[in-house]
Design a protein around this nucleic acid. Structure first.
Lengths: 231, 231
DNA sequence: GCATGATATAACTATTTGGTTACAAGTTGG
DNA sequence: CCAACTTGTAACCAAATAGTTATATCATGC
């Protein structure tokens, strides 16, 4: 990677001396977008791993193979960087949620899909869980400061409300079930299991993260959720 | 200001030379146990509020109205203090659990008691939730180091297993329900709701911590738990 | 082609932080 | 009552930390 970049630089220099460059030399040592993205990625890992107070700006710069100056250039300060990480992470989640289209499924199947989607999502994005925990430690201080998060209430809720409505019409779900409570239930079961897996498996001597155990817990979430809303 | 301080110092020096000080300044009294306890309490607040990396040793000393020296004297270093906080907090929980005696209750009532106990416990000890979140961020690194925690698996589990067994015998609970899964379910519903209340109420515009809302969620935990194990 | 602004590097600084030391004063056993 | 030990205070220190400055280099519009 570094070797390739160096070679590209040499090639570009060669081109410079040969003739005026109209040819936009693609990759060179300089690449603002990539630098920006790399810093954000490194910061996500660092903040997720150590929390806000434990994260080190130098470590982020090193992890991104860049320099503190760039980090401050793009994000202002440590708090600005943290906020950018938070917003980017939420944006990822929100995007993923758009894959869901439960409108035509049978309600019971829809609930299952919804619960498993959330569960798999948490599984695939452990950094999201860590950042959430950190942000709550700070009473959502930074999240509240974000103007992008106001319209961020999950698309899941709308899908969920629809599924519940249809299930109620079919007489298989209880009437007047609160969608937010159902969402909280699904999220709680997934979040707690994963977020607290380290202390939990220290206290109970049980391998919570074995593939089978993870699969079983996904089914457990589905079963509990359905049992709690069934007519 | 500096001038005034200097003058005061000179006055004190004057007094010193005038006569030997017999006057025992009243209550600078020493009290090792109290100091120890106060430091632990202050440290619990600080670590719960800012996480391990964000906690400041100076802040703890100040909060305890003592001195860093004492803190290092009693607890060795920052990590030692953190571990002591963790152990003390777990000990509190474990003690509280001993209040439970569900052996003679009707299983359904027993489950209700158990779930509400856990919920109320979390409500009464927000610092426990914060410390758990922090400790999981660190992959339970410090908790694993503790020799006191090995035998710390919850007394709740035994009580719970008994209740489930009796419920199964009466034919009201499903057979072969796993007690740990049930406990995780109860804990998850309580933990997530409280631990993430700040981000949740930022995203959904809902007052999660209103007294009524808290009470309702307690009943929700009971209802979901029972629905998930009923025959 | 070259002036200009954007992108990069590394060395630097002021402050904070965890941890220590010198020493004072209370406590206790003989 | 006094020597030895415990409990306390404050000043101190080296390392780490967030943030800055000086300066170089690339890209590109003119």
């Amino acid at each position: 990677m570094a070797g390739r970049a160096r070679q590209a630089t040499e090639n570009a220099a060669q081109a410079d001396t040969d003739k005026a460059i109209k040819t936009r030399s693609k990759k060179v040592s300089r690449n603002p977008q990539r630098t920006h993205a790399t810093i954000l990625e490194a910061a996500t890992e660092e903040f997720a791993a150590h929390g806000f107070g434990g994260a080190r700006v130098d470590a982020i710069a090193a992890r991104a193979q860049t320099n503190k100056r760039m980090l401050y250039h793009y994000f202002g300060d440590k708090e600005g960087l943290y906020l950018a990480v938070l917003e980017a992470t939420y944006a990822t989640i929100r995007n993923a949620e758009k894959q869901l289209d439960l409108a035509r499924r049978h309600p019971e199947e829809g609930m299952r899909e919804l619960a498993l989607f959330t569960w798999r999502h948490f599984l695939a994005h452990p950094e999201f869980l860590s950042l959430l925990a950190t942000e709550n430690l700070h009473h959502a201080h930074y999240l509240q400061r974000s103007d992008k998060v106001s319209a961020m209430h999950s698309h899941l809720i709308d899908e969920l409300a629809d599924v519940l409505r249809r299930g109620e019409a079919l007489g298989i779900f209880r009437p007047a079930v609160d969608p937010i409570s159902v969402y909280l239930t699904i999220a709680a079961l997934g979040f707690f299991y994963l977020s607290n897996r380290h202390t939990l498996s220290t206290i109970f001597a049980r391998k919570l993260t074995a593939p089978d155990a993870l699969n079983d817990w996904g089914e457990h979430i589905v079963a509990v959720t359905l049992a709690s809303i069934r007519a």
